[in-house]
């Protein structure tokens, strides 16, 4: 079903085999054994009706949760068996959530710096990096503000800056425009795609919006915990 077989010897970034996740001791099968590959630098969007398991899949990719069956290989190694979740979340992936999840008691700049805790860089360097990213998302005038002072679109732009602060190779975005009006949604998507290209990250984007999904190099359609189609998007090479 994959639109592109990897060249022999090329190790895919992610490779899932029979990946499954059940909640509540098997009463809620959220993901029913899916297989897919994602290569480095790809922009994959995942679409499907509410409750079909998109977030569950993203959580597994981001090591926010463990699968109940199957394996997920990351650069050839079984991620959930060998990886250190905290280090993986901090270094390898950047998360963008539907409801932003900025910490309410921290300023925008501090929010962007939160993932840098424990990173081997001076505070000045971390600050400089946060400032740079906030500038790139057009929020350099908002550094010292608390999240409540910002509009939804601005908050999501701050969250995008936060997701990139540790220079991750992968961005995982779970309906990043789901809480925004169409004007802000367009703006945020544009920004996200521009930064993805600039930073050369892999992007896995969960979305309702088929217009947005179409920008992807690949679109995975899900239903009831299964992948029903996996096809190139409009921006596919």
């Amino acid at each position: 079903m994959n639109h592109r077989e990897p060249a022999t010897g090329e190790v895919p970034l992610f490779e899932a085999a029979g990946l499954a996740k059940e909640y509540d001791d098997g009463r809620v099968p959220a993901l029913c054994g899916v297989d897919f590959r994602i290569s480095e630098g790809e922009f994959v969007s995942i679409v499907g009706p509410s409750g079909c398991g998109k977030s569950t899949l993203l959580n597994l990719l981001g090591m926010l949760d463990r699968p109940t069956a199957g394996t997920l290989r990351y650069r050839g190694k079984p991620l959930h068996q060998t990886g250190d979740p905290a280090s993986y979340r901090a270094r390898e992936v950047g998360f963008i959530f539907q409801s932003f999840h900025l910490l309410p008691t921290f300023t925008i700049e501090e929010n962007v710096m939160i993932p840098t805790f424990g990173f081997p860089a001076t505070r000045a360097e971390k600050r400089r990096r946060a400032k740079e990213l906030l500038e790139a998302v057009g929020l350099s005038h908002r550094l010292g503000h608390l999240p409540v002072k910002l509009s939804g679109g601005e908050r999501q732009r701050a969250a995008i800056a936060r997701s990139l602060v540790n220079r991750p190779g992968i961005l995982l975005a779970d309906e990043p425009t789901g809480n925004l009006d169409s004007k802000n949604a367009g703006h945020v998507m544009e920004l996200l795609l521009r930064l993805q290209r600039e930073h050369k990250t892999t992007l896995v984007l969960v979305t309702h919006d088929h217009g947005v999904a179409a920008h992807a190099s690949r679109v995975i359609r899900m239903k009831d915990g299964r992948i029903v189609s996996d096809a190139p998007g409009t921006s596919a090479p």
């Binding site: 905290a86 993986y88 901090a90 999840h101 939160i114 993932p115």
Partner: peptide, 8 residues
């Protein structure tokens, strides 16, 4: 959120 952002 802190855990998701890589805090131990």
């Amino acid at each position: 959120v802190l855990l998701a952002l890589g805090w131990r």
